[in-house]
């Protein structure tokens, strides 16, 4: 009994030790961005319990920033649902890529799927544990460490954000800056320009027609429609690359 317990403990310890170095680059980012999210929530008058709870329960950075906006607006469950599905749709493709890697990992797999954010995916998909370390627990601790950094950052931001003098405004720009950076990164990937234009034009059009309080859903429908319609164009481009258009 005692021996299995000891062996079990060393499995965890060695997995945690092997996982930690892979998460260090993410630690800085998550502590800072998490803290910005916490400060933003505090500056809008929310208790630190909000950023703490949402960073535990949602754990999808850009969605949490968007959630801050949702909580400040009027009650609109349908928009909240559709916005979440659209922003987080990329998770579906992370999941598909991890199906084989997460096979046979038992109960901890449930937590690993629950916490599969962009950064955890990029590390868990590529990082190789040393041969003596259990792969399942290695990936589990990568997920847990990343999640913890974000929760710690958001909670501290929420606590200390309330110390910021009243009347200082503009912390919400952290969200704008983050989205601009992600958009730039998307633009640097080949073939994405068309989709950025589609997303931008659909949104501007919907904003002009429906106004700023109710443009999100029409913008998303328009965007989906345009994406579906351009598929034939994109594919045609591929098959008729030689022909001038």
């Amino acid at each position: 009994m005692k021996n299995t317990k000891k062996a079990n403990k060393s499995v965890h310890l060695s997995a945690l030790k092997a996982a930690f170095p892979h998460t260090v680059p993410i630690m800085a980012g998550f502590l800072f961005l998490g803290a910005s999210y916490g400060v933003l929530m505090a500056s809008e008058g929310f208790s630190f319990l909000y950023p703490m709870a949402t960073s535990i329960l949602v754990f999808a950075g850009s969605m949490e920033f968007a959630l801050a906006g949702l909580l400040l607006g009027g009650f609109d469950p349908l928009s909240a649902l559709i916005l979440t599905l659209m922003i987080n749709s990329r998770h579906i493709f992370y999941g598909i890529s991890m199906i084989d890697k997460y096979k046979g990992m038992g109960l901890k797999k449930i937590y690993m799927i629950f916490s599969l954010c962009d950064e955890t995916f990029s590390v868990a998909y590529t990082a190789e544990p040393p041969p003596t370390v259990d792969r399942g627990w290695f990936t589990f601790y990568i997920s847990l460490l990343d999640h913890s950094y974000w929760v710690i950052g958001a909670t501290l931001g929420g606590i200390f954000g309330s110390l910021i003098p009243l009347g200082i405004v503009g912390f919400d720009f952290a969200m704008t800056a983050l989205f601009v950076v992600i958009l730039l990164e998307q633009l640097m990937k080949e073939g994405n320009l068309l989709f950025v234009i589609i997303g931008g034009l659909s949104s501007v059009l919907a904003l002009l027609v429906f106004g700023q309080d109710s443009f999100i859903i029409p913008a998303m429908l328009l965007m989906l429609l345009a994406i579906v319609l351009t598929r034939s164009v994109v594919d045609k481009d591929k098959s008729q690359r030689e022909e001038p258009s």
Partner: peptide, 25 residues
């Protein structure tokens, strides 16, 4: 291949929308 295509197209389009969303005011 259809799912693949939509999955590739959605993130850049959605983040363009989110940037517009930030500037809506």
């Amino acid at each position: 291949g259809y799912m693949n295509y939509v999955g590739r197209a959605l993130p850049p389009a959605v983040f363009a929308m989110l940037v517009i969303y930030c500037f809506k005011g």
